[in-house]
């Protein structure tokens, strides 16, 4: 099994542990990751130029297409953006031809062949979790028994569902299933599907902080020991808001780290 790994902008510079743990876990499960010369997924451009956003995204999709690979990303925002671009390219013919022209300058073309997937569904398939399974997956050698984990889904993995194609946007289960597969216990928390607040950080910091703190308080009140993330934006957001506090009380952990621990991979290879 082989994918082009799309790390996006945040992971290499701000959250290298996510790259390390993703590579470690997937290597352990026999997945080959190929690095292409990807650029920004296009998300920041959406506020300025619809075409600019789609061109940025399509360039990456076209690179993967040329390499004959599907795209795998650990970032839910990149997932959402790349898939969103696919939808727009699919439904808007004039846009498609404008983008084709822009890509042609680089000798690239988009036809929609390269699919985009997030790490979580791939892991769910690889470790063979079944819905509602309560026993750790076969790949797990050091079950994280007793650890109470709150799953932070990330908006752009879930919604809009026709674009994200990830899980039921109103009642997703994949993350909890994956947590159970490590032997840990998923926590049901009222704000689990809420926005982490990160997108408001630039424009309205106090409101963003209000949102983030509400989530942290909710997870804590629901008995979580660990907030498990699958998106660098969410992860960094929770860490940033808690870093000012004297004692960050809700530990954040990337899902790839949690799974890596449960597989018995060395902590260093997981960026821990």
């Amino acid at each position: 099994m082989k994918y082009a790994l799309f790390l996006g902008c945040k992971i290499p510079s701000r959250l290298p542990a996510y790259e390390a743990s993703t590579r470690a876990v997937l290597a352990h499960l026999g997945v080959t990751l190929v690095d292409l010369e990807f650029t920004c997924c296009g998300y920041p451009a959406r506020n300025v130029s619809r075409d600019g956003f789609v061109v940025s995204a399509a360039r990456n999709l076209a690179l993967a297409e040329r390499a004959g690979l599907d795209v795998l990303t650990p970032c839910t925002c990149c997932l959402g953006t790349l898939r969103h671009a696919q939808v727009l390219l699919d439904e808007d013919a004039p846009l498609r031809s404008r983008v084709a022209q822009a890509l042609a300058a680089d000798g690239l073309a988009w036809s929609g062949k390269a699919a985009v997937e997030h790490v979580l569904p791939l892991l769910a398939r690889l470790i063979g979790t079944n819905k509602g399974a309560t026993v750790p997956a076969a790949a797990v050698s050091v079950p994280r028994t007793g650890l109470r984990v709150a799953a932070q889904y990330g908006c752009h993995a879930l919604r809009p569902a026709n674009v994200a194609r990830f899980d039921n946007p109103m009642a997703p289960t994949i993350f909890e299933t994956l947590i159970r597969a490590t032997g840990a216990t998923p926590v049901d928390w009222p704000r689990r599907l809420d926005c982490c607040g990160d997108p408001l950080h630039e424009g309205n910091p106090p409101l963003a902080e209000h949102m983030t703190r509400a989530k942290i308080a909710d997870a804590l009140a629901s008995g979580a020991e660990v907030l498990c993330t699958a998106c660098p934006h969410c992860h960094l957001r929770f860490d940033a808001v808690q870093s000012g506090a004297p004692d960050p009380s809700l530990r954040t952990l990337l899902y790839t780290q949690l799974l890596g621990q449960a597989m018995g991979l060395p902590a260093k290879s997981l960026g821990l």
């Binding site: 809009p160 408001l200 409101l207």
Partner: peptide, 24 residues
């Protein structure tokens, strides 16, 4: 400008209006 683009509005709209997409 403060829309978080969390897409709750778009996902839940009974009329299928792409509210968040419009905001962006």
């Amino acid at each position: 400008w403060d829309c978080a683009t969390c897409y709750q509005c778009q996902e839940n709209c009974p009329e299928g209006i792409r509210v968040a997409d419009i905001m962006v």
